[in-house]
Design a protein around this nucleic acid. Sequence first.
DNA 1: CCCTGATTCGC
DNA 2: GCGAATCAGG
Length: 179
Amino acid sequence: MNWTDERVEKLKRLWSEGLSASQIAAQLGGVSRNAVIGKVHRLNLPGRAKAGGTIATNRTAKRPAATAPRPQQTFAARPAARPVARPVGATALKEEVEFEASQELVYRPASNVVLPISRKLALTELTERTCKWPVGDPLTDDFHFCGCESPDNSPYCTYHAKLAYQPVNERRRPSAARA
DNA sequence: CCCTGATTCGC
DNA sequence: GCGAATCAGG
């Protein structure tokens, strides 16, 4: 992934808006936060006043825009298809089925990934370089695809490619042995 | 430990 | 020029 003019421009914009290097890296896709920081320095962009989350306050016209705090994102999974209760009624299977049916799965992204700003593309707007992660319910008008730039050979943007959802419900399957 | 940006230095 | 490794700090 090379620094095209377009990507450099985006980097400058996001940096001036106060996004962190890791967030910018997630938006650009295909680069690490180190790469972003390195590029910022090579471009001689004004750095942050102090490290560690505090946003710079000085200088001409480089006021960081309101850093819209990223809301704690939670994703309510579509209710899983209710398992069909089979006539083969072993107790274990019944418990399994009831367990599945009672699960209200709530997913949250792993803490070390940054949610990209979805471009909300329609299916027909996708290209080889846009993230194809579906968002929303396909049966509604809100359904779209992430559409962020995806790295080479990846159908998804950096975020969605390594997204590791974890069930908040830690409840174990009845048959699972305690560790 | 999580995160942040800054710096170094081999490539 | 690039960015991983590393450092220093909140």
